[in-house]
Design a protein around this nucleic acid. Structure first.
Lengths: 143, 143
DNA sequence: CGTGATGGTAAAGTGACTTGACCCTATATG
DNA sequence: CATATAGGGTCAAGTCACTTTACCATCACG
């Protein structure tokens, strides 16, 4: 049952993000694009590096990059240090969308802090953080 | 960043479940099937009711039910009280798989309780639970 | 009864992926 | 220097968990 307990807040965050994105006119942003903007975001990273981090194939990433480039959220430009490679650059529009998403998350956090009380909410965050660190220690991230 | 904090434990639970399922010979169980076995499980429910609960279309559910029936995890039998309807019945094999999944979750919970200390883990669960209740109150579940 | 709602299914389409094959450039080795 | 091998990226085709559309069968009701 802990699975549901954890899953539900994630859903709430996602819903809030899309609600706010929609309100701010980012109606072309798709749920599938979210994965790309997970912390710390795609700015100034190489596609293959990002694909590895996100645990999807280079092709799948490229497919999403193509959409997001066409929508004007980011650009793929040649890597100056490696003739083979590209680097992803988040555009102004992309940064604006990120701000909206971060704002939505902040909003949720404030609401939760208010409902739980700020010290209990701080506890929750600390507990989740240590849990992350503990399990991250046991499961070395893909290199 | 709270998104990542919440998402990661969910992933850990899923990975553990599939590891254990695999070890117990349920190698044909697919990640897509997981949604069907979310609490409280599909046993003795009608397909359309379950589809509504899971927020997917009746057709999508039926597609998954077909697979799981073929794999012997459950059966669709006519509803005795309604000639139109069916009822889902979890088979012996299905119940065995559920036991393995629940066991995997228990295992994770014990590990976390050990790492965080049992009273801090209890705190975490309580906090998540109240968070769920609070947000559930604000967002009435689909009827 | 018959009319509209409800439960289920068949068929076709969609889209986010995967696998496989390939090109180009970089790096290492003889 | 030459050549092999590895790494970064892309094109093409296939897969599969869905959705949309359309439809049949049964139920509840006036």
């Amino acid at each position: 049952m802990i699975g549901a307990l954890l899953r539900m807040p994630v859903d709430v965050v996602h819903r809030q993000m899309f609600e706010r994105l929609h309100e701010h006119g980012f109606t072309d942003f798709d749920p599938a694009h979210l994965i790309l903007f997970q912390w710390p975001g795609p700015d100034d990273t190489r596609p293959s590096e990002l694909a590895a981090r996100l645990q999807i194939s280079k092709q799948a990433l490229n497919y999403l990059l193509g959409q997001l480039e066409q929508l004007g959220y980011l650009e793929r430009r040649p890597d100056p240090h490696d003739q083979r490679g590209k680097r992803i650059t988040v555009t102004k529009r992309g940064r604006a969308a990120i701000r909206v998403m971060r704002g939505a998350v902040d909003e949720i956090e404030r609401a939760w802090a208010e409902q739980l009380g700020s010290e209990r909410f701080a506890q929750l965050k600390t507990l989740l953080l240590t849990l992350n660190q503990l399990t991250a220690a046991r499961e070395p991230a893909a290199e």
